[in-house]
Nucleic acid binder design. Sequence first.
DNA 1: ATATTCTGAATGAATGTTCATTCCTAATAC
DNA 2: GTATTAGGAATGAACATTCATTCAGAATAT
Lengths: 191, 191
Amino acid sequence: MTKQVKREDIIRAAMDLIAAQGFHGAPMSMIAEKAGVGVGTIYRYFENRDVLIKSIYKEIEERLVAYLTKKYPSEEPVRICFFHIAKGLVTYFTQHPMDFKYFEQFHYSPFGEAHRRNRIFKSAGQPDIFMELYERGLAQQVIKNLPPTVFFNLAFAPIVWSLRDHILEMVAIDDSLAELLVTSCWDSVKI
Amino acid sequence: MTKQVKREDIIRAAMDLIAAQGFHGAPMSMIAEKAGVGVGTIYRYFENRDVLIKSIYKEIEERLVAYLTKKYPSEEPVRICFFHIAKGLVTYFTQHPMDFKYFEQFHYSPFGEAHRRNRIFKSAGQPDIFMELYERGLAQQVIKNLPPTVFFNLAFAPIVWSLRDHILEMVAIDDSLAELLVTSCWDSVKI
DNA sequence: ATATTCTGAATGAATGTTCATTCCTAATAC
DNA sequence: GTATTAGGAATGAACATTCATTCAGAATAT
């Protein structure tokens, strides 16, 4: 078993456990057992628990940003770009519920609190499609004149909450409901 | 010092600590110290930690519901009722940021998970102004045909997120911005 | 009025448990 | 044979909860 594979096993195990049970339901001993390694082994791959947790977050974030950025129609109107991102979020997280749950656990924890100051998707190197969308929308006067924070909240908070409800099986978001949801978000910010 | 006063001291101390630092930053010993009582004393007023935490939640919830229900214009159109609730939320939580922070901590924790399920599935109990609003809106065809969950998410998620940002001082929500925010939420659910 | 006994609220040291982390030994690679 | 990696028991820190003890004030007796 190569080093890389063992590292992946640890990440996979930790992610699944934390997504399913929260940080409390995922002690190092349990992660080790699920990954099929000794507890001490984890510390050969990650300096400590915090580093492990942040590494997992980074991996998920990279996958998500890659997904949203791929085929991003940057030349199209703001509205089209918004729909691309919003529907992309729904699709990605519907297909990767564990990623969503992990994201949520992370975000509402001391880790996320620290992370929140810098905006979510502002990873170095990546062009910030969110901010670009906001600025272009304002400049072209297709969206209301709102502070960026409030714009993002109107545009994405209902989607995130609905994804959570969908993943918790409290509502079923099919294609047509997703369309309606995303359209409604757009309705709230468009002029 | 009367019993009631001491109980209030404990609740106040626990609430402030948990709101500010999260559940982790509020061990019983610290709550006791801040309340000016012995650790054991807390257990004379609350069976255990969980009961204390849930009691605090209930007190806040009662205050909030009382605030929203007072002067509720139940005879007015759906739109007016929505604005009453939405603006009431903004006003109440702007004036009681600790209540908001506690609510948030509670909601994104194992306590909240359980609480949420109950709340949604058995909406029984007191006259639920939220559910009443949804049903009346649907019947009168003034709101889109959406599952209740998604309706609530569209209507309130951006408000909650924006309140959080306001309380964290990442955006300043004054009266006119609140008006714009609430109107935008209504725009997203109205027909 | 004063002394004595009783009561139960208040306390915080002690207990038991849960974990992250360490570190020594075993296994494996080179 | 030596160096590197894996393993998991041991360690110690953090915490919720308990419970034997204290003590102020109420009740009762003298």
